[in-house]
Computed example of a mutant assay.
Amino acid sequence: MPGCALAGAIAISPPRLDITLTGTQAAEAVKVVNLDTNPIRLKVSVAHWRLDEHNRVEVIPPTPQSADQWLLITPLEFVVEPGKFQTLRILVRPRVKPEVGEHRAMIFLDEQPPDTKEFATRNLARIGVGVYVWVPPVERKAIFHCADAGYFQKPMALLDLESTGNAHVRPAVQFVVWPKEKFPGKAGTVKVQESPSSPVVVPAGAVAAGLVPDIPVLPGTRRKIVFPLAESLPAGEYWLDLSGQVDSLPIAEVVPFIVPELPSGDARDGAH
């Protein structure tokens, strides 16, 4: 199901809400789909959040300027029959005069225990929908500090990014791993996708390719986005080819790295 967030047998579309607030209020909606063969009962809650040092959502206390204080959601508890959907309606209505820039909330949908004892031991799903409310004028400013790559139980890389504006920035960056002798000579020479919805294709001569996770770098923060390049690679010298942009900031970087010969018996997929 394209353009959806999935957890268990629950699909939500769109997976996040981007709302520009130009008046006193704004309305949005999400569709909650039951992909299971049994009814699913869900309860809605809202929280303020940030990302911790591992890029995981961390719930934090609300403030008058956090968007969780501005959301009116209906319904707050509902049952979705198998193969059916429920529309969740969201109204943004600030309780105070909003400051310019970004305001965040996370809408959590928690699956409730079923009434049927036969299914009472099933794992219950939790899914979150990020909500970004932007009050103009919005300024997105990114600083690219560095990129690195190496072998840490598997080939890994990182981007070190900073957001200095009043709204978050996201990387839209591809990577290609070339054996040193096959690098085409310039970052971004070959594209790995025909379009944002098409699959990633490893270019001829390369050994791996993919997309840097589009983890948000929240305003006023600096973040290292760490990601795997492959499950394993033969020992040798490689060049990591990074190209794309972080909002309006272009990225074109080449990082050499080495995959070492491992002692006999060690596995390249993470022995320790």
Rank of each mutant, 00 (worst) to 15 (best):
Q65R: 12
I73N: 03
G130D: 05
D115S: 06
R126I: 03
A47R: 14
P155G: 06
C146T: 15
G150Y: 01
L76T: 12
T121M: 15
G150K: 04
A105N: 04
E118F: 15
R122C: 06
V92E: 01
V59G: 00
A120D: 13
G150C: 07
P64D: 09
L124C: 08
R122K: 14
P137R: 11
T116R: 13
A142M: 05
L71W: 10
D52I: 00
R41M: 10
C146K: 15
K84I: 05
A147W: 14
T63L: 03
F85H: 14
G130R: 08
T87D: 07
S45W: 14
R140T: 13
V131C: 02
T63F: 01
G101N: 11
V131Y: 02
V96D: 06
S45F: 06
W49L: 09
P155R: 11
W70K: 09
Q153H: 08
V96K: 01
I127K: 02
V92G: 00
Q69F: 04
R104W: 05
I107W: 03
P82T: 12
G150Q: 09
E102T: 03
I60Q: 07
W70Y: 10
L76I: 07
L124V: 12
N123E: 13
G130P: 13
P94C: 00
T74M: 04
V138W: 02
T74S: 13
V135M: 01
P82Y: 13
E77D: 08
Q86K: 12
Q65D: 04
V59E: 08
E53F: 08
L42F: 00
P113Y: 12
P94E: 00
E118W: 14
V131W: 02
P64N: 14
I60Y: 07
Q65E: 09
T87C: 06
I40V: 12
P137H: 14
P114A: 07
